[in-house]
């Protein structure tokens, strides 16, 4: 099993609270993702899903454990984390587009700044990607003039502009009006079909079922159940998983 593109071993994360207390959010997670694999991460609110995802590119500093990316231990101080991040891009719940830059600039800024492409290449790539997410006509628009769904599609295009090896999605549709969820999921489905490696934290069980190769159920900071969508969704073993799914699916 050594062909993981990301491998996580015994990951712990403890937040130090302002009142001096400690909050153990991740309590020993070991897992990994293969190239081209799509993994859905589900679990109750506050169970540590986002924290897990944010530890993968060290947006949160892991308390202990090892995370390796393409064989390199990224928790070591020697690791060039900025380089790792440019290959492991994140799509946020609240998009976080850069509002002072046009859509075009949002897409070209990082590749050009990091000298991955020259401005012309980046521009061509931006047009390509926007066409791919169905927003070719918005290239010179300001982010604040886009709808939520359009913003998230631009955010996905922005991540793709880095030509990443892995995409990390943290509830990409949770902040959207229901009628806009579909357009974003369509883009993600197309991405998945094209062979992109994806970690997907989501509450969209139907989508997870349809797209994921594997599903992780995280509860109280550990992976309490793991398997194919059929195994986890249709025949959960753990009582906590059953309880969670019955609540979510009833909704």
């Amino acid at each position: 099993m050594n062909d993981y593109i990301i491998e996580v071993k015994d990951l712990h994360k403890t937040f130090r609270l302002q009142d001096g207390g400690e909050l153990h959010v991740l309590n020993g997670i070991s897992t990994g993702i293969h190239k081209g694999e799509k993994i859905a991460v589900i679990g109750p609110s506050g169970s540590g899903k986002s924290t897990f995802l944010r530890c993968l590119n060290r947006m949160e500093e892991p308390t202990s454990g090892i995370i390796s990316f393409k064989g390199e231990d990224i928790t070591s101080p020697k690791c060039d984390i900025d380089h790792v991040r440019s290959k492991m891009c994140m799509v946020f719940q609240h998009f976080h587009l850069f509002p002072h830059l046009t859509v075009r600039k949002n897409l070209t800024l990082a590749p050009v700044e990091l000298k991955l492409m020259n401005p012309d290449e980046a521009d061509t790539r931006a047009k390509e990607l926007l066409a791919r997410v169905g927003l070719a006509d918005k290239i010179d628009e300001w982010p604040d003039r886009l709808s939520g769904g359009q913003k998230q599609r631009v955010a996905i295009a922005r991540a793709l502009a880095m030509n990443p090896d892995v995409l990390l999605f943290d509830e990409p549709t949770s902040a959207l009006d229901p009628e806009m969820i579909g357009e974003v999921l369509d883009v993600m489905k197309e991405l998945a079909d094209s062979g992109m490696t994806m970690y997907l934290v989501t509450h969209e069980m139907g989508f997870a079922h349809k797209v994921a190769d594997r599903v992780l159920f995280i509860d109280k900071g550990i992976i309490s159940e793991e398997g194919t969508p059929e195994e986890v969704f249709d025949d959960p073993k753990q009582p906590r998983t059953k309880e969670f799914l019955s609540k979510v699916l009833r909704r």
């Binding site: 900025d82 790792v84 991040r85 440019s86 290959k87 976080h96 990082a110 700044e113 880095m162």
Partner: peptide, 18 residues
């Protein structure tokens, strides 16, 4: 400025200063 802006920029591989 929303801390998410810094996070988004860092998550693309830009350094703190940039």
């Amino acid at each position: 400025i929303d801390p998410g802006q810094m996070e988004a920029a860092r998550s693309l591989g830009l350094s703190y200063g940039t």
